[in-house]
């Protein structure tokens, strides 16, 4: 059997799409390409080198910032998973006056401009007498990652018929076992998807972190600091690393949060 070949034709809509995507992705491509360029300027490209990457991995301060970032993001997301998931149950299952208002307010840390949340948290920590440290950054990250997971899990819970839980109870499962064997496996993909999204957001967050950072800093803030000495190919290199990492996470997340017909 012959496979039918579709001829690629450039329609006006196609041209528009190419332009739009070029606008979005060309700068990223430039960053990737010039991270392998031996010259320090982005004008002109000759040869291929990995020396910026080698330099990168020998930069102890940068590696420390990367580890800090991982620490903050992983811890923040772990806390957000627990708080966000239980919050989602409360939002979907509990009935109380002002539920709609509560639902909107719970998304506020996500919608609010980072600068406002950053200043607000800074004022709070200053007044409480906390030193700016990993803890202050962590709290800031928990603030905006929790709503992400809560929203993902809540929308899954909303679509999940209660009859599965009724059936489990009817078949002899205690409330704890019902949650563990029936409810949790059915919302698992939403939790994982939400956590991956929250992690990507936390990993490259800069504004809130900038306000809450003392001497202890994360990778995005560190990169921002590097920029003060000009756009070095080393910045391109680290950006490429972060970009690749984020892409992997986003692909994974899309896989987990895709709406699947599960019934």
């Amino acid at each position: 059997m012959k496979k039918e070949r579709r001829k690629f034709k450039l329609s006006p809509l196609g041209i528009y799409a190419v332009l739009a995507y070029s606008f979005l992705y060309l700068p990223l491509a430039v960053v990737i390409v010039f991270s392998f360029s031996p010259t320090k300027s982005i004008v002109g490209f000759s040869g291929f080198t990995t020396r910026w990457y080698i330099k990168l991995f020998n930069d102890e301060a940068l590696i420390a910032a990367l580890i800090h970032s991982l620490q903050v993001s992983l811890t923040a997301v772990s806390i957000a998973v627990v708080v966000g998931t239980s919050g989602a149950f409360f939002l979907v299952r509990a009935n109380f006056p002002g539920k709609q208002l509560f639902r909107s307010l719970s998304q506020l840390p996500l919608i609010l401009p980072g600068i406002i949340l950053g200043i607000a948290l800074l004022i709070l920590f200053m007044n409480l007498g906390f030193e700016l440290s990993m803890f202050s950054i962590l709290m800031g990250h928990v603030c905006f990652t929790t709503p992400v997971i809560m929203f993902q899990v809540a929308s899954r819970l909303q679509r999940l018929p209660r009859s599965f839980e009724y059936a489990a109870k009817d078949l002899g499962a205690t409330p704890v076992k019902t949650f563990w064997y029936v409810t949790l496996p059915m919302i698992r993909t939403a939790i994982i998807g939400g956590a991956l999204l929250a992690f990507t957001m936390s990993f490259d967050e800069i504004i809130i972190t900038y306000f809450l950072t003392g001497t202890w800093t994360t990778l995005p803030v560190f990169i921002y600091g590097m920029m003060r000495f000009g756009l070095s190919p080393q910045v391109f290199a680290i950006s490429t690393v972060v970009l690749t990492f984020a892409m992997v996470l986003i692909v994974l997340m899309a896989k987990f949060t895709a709406v699947r017909e599960e019934l």
């Binding site: 059936a167 029936v182 019934l263």
Partner: peptide, 17 residues
């Protein structure tokens, strides 16, 4: 429900997916 010796066949069957 989980301590009663009765079982139910639900309208949508609720087969754990």
């Amino acid at each position: 429900a989980h301590r009663r010796n009765v079982n139910t066949v639900f309208q949508d069957y609720a087969i754990f997916p």
